[in-house]
Amino acid sequence: MTEQATAGAVRTLTLSKSINEGLRRALTDDDKVVVMGEDIGELGGVFRVTDGLKAEFGPQRVIDTPLAEAGIIGTAVGLAYRGYRPVCEIQFDGFIYPGFDQIVAQVAKLHARTNGDVRMPITIRVPFGGGIGSVEHHSESPEAYFAHTAGLRVVTCSNPQDAYSMLREAIASDDPVLFFEPKRRYWTKGEVDLEHVPDQSMERARVLTSGTDITLVAYGPLVPTALDAAAAASEDGISVEVIDLRSLQPVDFDAVAASVRVTGRLIVTHEAQRFGGMGAEISATITERCFEFLESAPERVTGFDTPYPPAAFEDHFLPDMDRILDAVDRSMGRRNSLSEWRFDG
């Protein structure tokens, strides 16, 4: 924290307002930053994250685009060639797929395929996750597709301060960054130091509660849920160390491994479907690195391998505190929902 980080710079903001302030600061500090997306200008975005920015910076800095995601990402590539630093908004998680080719075949690869001659400092903001009772394609968690793609950095924030500082770091990065915003936490309030200087800490995981029995890894919207579960477990005498992963590519395996070497147990939770997800990668890597420290098999508490269901079902689909606590019991070798379970299929 710098000397300038005085009380005057610390404000209580919602997570969405923190992102708005992060964009404002980036637009102010660097005239090569342009913000582009659907409905982000006059309307201020469907979540009002870009509220007021077009009026302040004008239509060439805050660009309402045609309704075409490949077009948004593809023109951002051209702007990056020209020396710009585009920040693209994808309106909802499930709308990113029309832009997928431009992201994985162009944005992700251009630095490598030009031997570093061309940089792609593009930030792609994506509101993601469920829990808001919305219609289909509005509640998805597509982060693993991008974490799997070489050449992309993938991050997600869980609180207003991280939303502000990680976004500024993402925009300042010379690499493309997928910036996943937990949309059901947009209205969460917290203190934000607006003078926080981007410091390349974005890819570091953060230990939120220290514990000795179980390492519980969460990111984005499920971090508060994980903290609730840890508090409930502690009442039961189980000490849970909650880690907010923050960066999904690269993953701070050093931090997770250090924790598991103490606790001997690992639970990973995310909203995304389980198969081939972040939980699989983290469980596999930690098993490779910490095999001899493990007291039990890593557990995953995730969405199911179904399409994201209609809103009436989402409380079943989304991991919650009780499902995490059930995994805590399993991890600890205590009686749990699967103790008597048999499957003959």
């Binding site: 490949a70 590539v77 051209g78």
Partner: peptide
């Protein structure tokens, strides 16, 4: 620019570059 092998992808890049001009 680096030659595009994915067919047509470069047209969007050209437009973005032109917007930058």
């Amino acid at each position: 620019a680096a030659p595009a092998i994915i067919i047509g992808a470069q047209t969007l890049h050209a437009v973005g570059y032109a917007m930058g001009c």
